[in-house]
Write a protein that binds this DNA or RNA. Structure first.
Lengths: 336, 336
DNA sequence: CCCGCTCCTCGAACCGGTTCGACGGAAGTT
DNA sequence: AACTTCCGTCGAACCGGTTCGAGGAGCGGG
């Protein structure tokens, strides 16, 4: 069922069929109909590989996502879903690439073998060799997150500095003086993940500004780690009355730890952080948090990438999002 | 950076380069080294589209997943991750395809345009036209879930009937007599989703067998729906003392509803169901549940698909999994 | 010395599209 | 009636690989 077969049955040349389909040159109405009839009858669809080979575009974008080692968070899921959906509206497919330990193999494959027209990179590090690599190749890509030197590159990111600071101010306004910070896992922090770094930064600075006494922790991406992390927090400073978390996956464990320690949320202890709304609403009491707009970010990333693909000379664009804190039920004034 | 360029610089023909790389014909050690040197120097990687066009294989598998309309569950996320990872070990890439309202467009694209060598289908319905379509085309695919007539087709599924029954027996053994069932959303049930149907079936039969008084509910895939569903349960029969849920995303809402109704889990009310372990462990108290082995299923699905691709004439194979119930902390003997 | 065999390499055809230059015929000009 | 213009179509080349049949070089055997 190739274009030659269609041409033969319609009694025209292959190029005429091609033009009839692409509309890049005029084709008489009569011929077009004849061709269309044959196509409908045979259910012809052009071969994607052949098309890609001929015109150099695969109509596919790569989504480079973190390895399973660090467990996926709900936010990542929502993000992936929205990317796929947004890409579909532009008639792009999405190819997943695990960027793991051998980030090279799979990543190089995407680029070197020209499997994709452009890429979206998740979980950016402040110093990200992948970004430098892509920039050096001038390969169309959009980063989710802002590296240390984001100027002149394409990205959509969350203002983690501002969000963490907003959490601090919210707690400080409620009268909390001793606050803990629960970050992503230590290995991610050490690897230089931007959300972990900028979040920590924003938290620390804002806390200093407000004169709070703080302790910061890293915590594995699962409930069990959240539980032990909370135990450490109360052990290190039993007078702690609130915490800020960037760690969505640990949230359940943190809550459990508080329950086990006999601290009632929000009466005895306030919890807030940066978490996708769906997950903030799953826990009881519902989490007062800066809602990560994962879906919006996915859509924006695709928008930017498509624009970059369609207009290669557009100057770099980006979106820095800073969603407000949604007041729910997990924070309350500190009891004096 | 194409094969012709490599050939020119190495002073050999294009075909020799091809054979040196594929090893499908002997090439002298000397020539091979000469070619390899040029390749290393120029960083050549063969173009995937050209290769696919020539040999008819894309080295890509399609993952057809449900539309975003019904929100993704954690289990789906784990599953997608494990599929991508398992595929990578076989040197396959994964192309995502949202099979949504216009299941046709995106789905047809995958197949008709030959973008993938095979496909994995999630969220199977008992009567799934996609499966029939694929079977008619003899297109290599593996279903996640078991349709009404699974014989002669490839799939890996969860024995929802047995799992739901196991939950019932667990509760009955604990002395519960009035039990509610929280299913996936009504629209999915009506669409014929197999997990919803078989789960309901297993629940109903086992409950009849044990002489329990039951009520069954459908519930949206989010916390808010879980909350209202629980309110309905207690309103319809305040004497209910336990529930079984297939609805992972509603779990948080169910718990909240119980807390609001003043029912303590597990003292006053037992909760169990079929949920991925990661999520069962995030709630407090941790959920006693049949753990959905999402990662294992992803790996198995890829294994089957690859086998089917490598040996097209293998008779159909499948895996029916029935993980045991993990006892955690959400069930207890009924108080008389 | 010639033949046949093995081993390696080459050229050409092919996969299924896109695109460019050319060409034939109808319509419009003078 | 001859000349240009424009429209629609065609053939050929190309994208970058793979694969097949053929052929040359080197070798041992007769």
């Amino acid at each position: 069922m190739n274009i030659g077969e269609i041409a033969k049955r319609a009694g025209v040349s292959r190029s005429t069929v091609s033009y009839a389909l692409s509309g890049k040159r005029p084709v008489s109405g009569e011929t077009r109909q004849k061709i269309q009839r044959v196509i409908d009858e045979l259910g012809y669809q052009p071969n994607a590989s052949a098309r890609a080979l001929a015109n150099g575009r695969t109509d596919t974008i790569g989504l480079v996502f973190p390895p399973a080692g660090n467990h996926y968070t709900g936010m990542q899921l929502d993000f992936i879903g929205s990317v796929v959906e947004a890409a579909a509206t532009y008639d792009y497919d999405v190819l997943l690439s695990p960027s793991g330990v051998d980030s090279d193999r799979s990543f190089q494959r995407l680029l070197g073998e020209r499997r994709v027209d452009g890429a979206i990179l998740m979980e950016i590090r402040l110093d990200d060799d992948r970004l430098e690599h892509l920039a050096a190749l001038d390969f169309p890509s959009v980063a989710i997150g802002r590296s240390a030197h984001p100027d002149g590159s394409w990205w959509v990111g969350l203002d983690h500095t501002a969000l963490a600071a907003a959490c601090v101010h919210h707690l400080a306004d409620l009268g909390h003086r001793r606050v803990a910070f629960v970050n992503r896992p230590e290995q991610l922090l050490r690897a230089g993940y931007e959300s972990a770094h900028r979040g920590l930064d924003g938290f620390t600075k804002a806390a200093a500004e407000r004169g709070l006494t703080v302790r910061t922790y890293t915590c594995g991406d699962d409930a069990a780690s959240g539980l032990t992390c909370l135990e450490r927090i109360l052990h290190d400073d039993p007078a702690t009355t609130a915490l800020v978390t960037l760690n969505e996956a640990a949230l359940g464990g943190l809550y459990r730890g508080l329950a086990q320690a006999g601290r009632h949320v929000p009466r005895d202890f306030s919890v807030t952080g940066v978490v996708a709304s769906r997950w903030a609403e799953t826990v009881t009491p519902q989490l007062t948090a800066a809602d990560v707009p994962a879906e919006q970010m996915g859509r924006l990333a695709v928008d930017l990438l498509v624009q970059r693909l369609d207009h290669p000379d557009t100057p770099a664009r980006n979106h820095l999002l800073a969603p407000p804190i949604s007041l729910r039920a997990s924070t309350a004034p500190a009891t004096p």
